[in-house]
Design a protein around this nucleic acid. Structure first.
Lengths: 158, 158
DNA sequence: ATCAAATATGAATAACTATTCATCATGGGA
DNA sequence: TCCCATGATGAATAGTTATTCATATTTGAT
């Protein structure tokens, strides 16, 4: 099957929205979405996505997406980025972010640093960023990815 | 044996200073320090210390101390704390931190939030914090713990 | 279009980690 | 002092995750 990308997206969505403490558990959740794979594949996926296993008072250990955290100064950059963000639209599979004048480059850098596999690359002007998504990645996926990178966007989008 | 505390300290020291990717490996490192235990005990220790296993490009996965990270705004609080820190002294097993006027409460909160087992508790006035260490915890251990909590202190202490 | 190389995957298994069970030590109350 | 409850620990084992090996699929170059 060629839905590796779909599976990776689903894994990230699941992990970011609920507490999962084993690959078997994750396997079942994927099954409910019609994605049938084995634990071996999942193990590889989690490694690929650099998913961490962190201590959790409730479930012992749970999986957690890596993303930005752990980088000093990141939060500041994020809220700066959120401040400059104006809107996002899609056309012909491409995303177009409008920003306040001058903000585009720094926001694009933020996205590039995380380098999510959903986004092949970005091109920033002064107040516009072009987002080039991977094939098979939907607009919703791109938006979710951006929200994971810059949580403050949640309130500004849609 | 009564050196559980010693072992927990050693584990934290090892993990914070080098990349360890399995309990067997950690077991050997402890052995070199004269601490002989089994993997079962280590598993319990790591759970107790809430140690995380995070992705590492070099070794796949490595253990990492929990401490502050993962909490938004934490970095800011840290550098603020480091700014207000003046000195630390010990007397009768108790640590006494002097801060700039008004800084003591917020620095104490930082320490309390991490709640390291080396420190039973803190008491903050306006510019003074009393640190109450656990039995069998040395001054050096307390200082190391504080540095783990507030890395910027490294340059200000000693 | 064809072949080679790279990638993806599952089954089986190895490697690693957590838990169960039994034992021993310690520290309060009666 | 004598139990009893609690906590620490190891051995064995159960549970979980990573890897190996074999195939199949996709991609790229000719």
């Amino acid at each position: 099957m060629g839905n590796r990308t779909e599976r990776l997206l689903a894994i990230r969505n699941i992990i970011s929205s609920q507490k999962v403490s084993s690959q078997e558990e994750l396997l079942e959740l994927l099954e409910k979405k019609g994605l049938n794979y084995t634990q071996a594949t999942l193990s590889r996926d989690l490694k690929f996505l650099k998913v961490n296993k962190i201590s959790d008072t409730e479930k012992g250990y749970i999986y957690e997406l890596p993303d930005q955290h752990h980088m000093p100064g990141q939060e500041l950059a994020e809220s700066y980025a959120a401040q400059g963000f104006v809107s996002i639209q899609f056309a012909n599979k491409l995303g177009v972010i409008k920003t306040l004048p001058g903000y585009a480059p720094s926001i694009a850098v933020l996205i590039d640093k995380v380098n999510p596999f959903e986004i092949v690359g970005t091109l920033a002007g002064d107040d516009t960023i072009l987002i080039i998504p991977h094939d098979n990645v939907t607009e919703k996926d791109v938006i979710n990815t951006l929200i994971i990178i810059i949580p403050e966007l949640k309130d500004k989008i849609k």
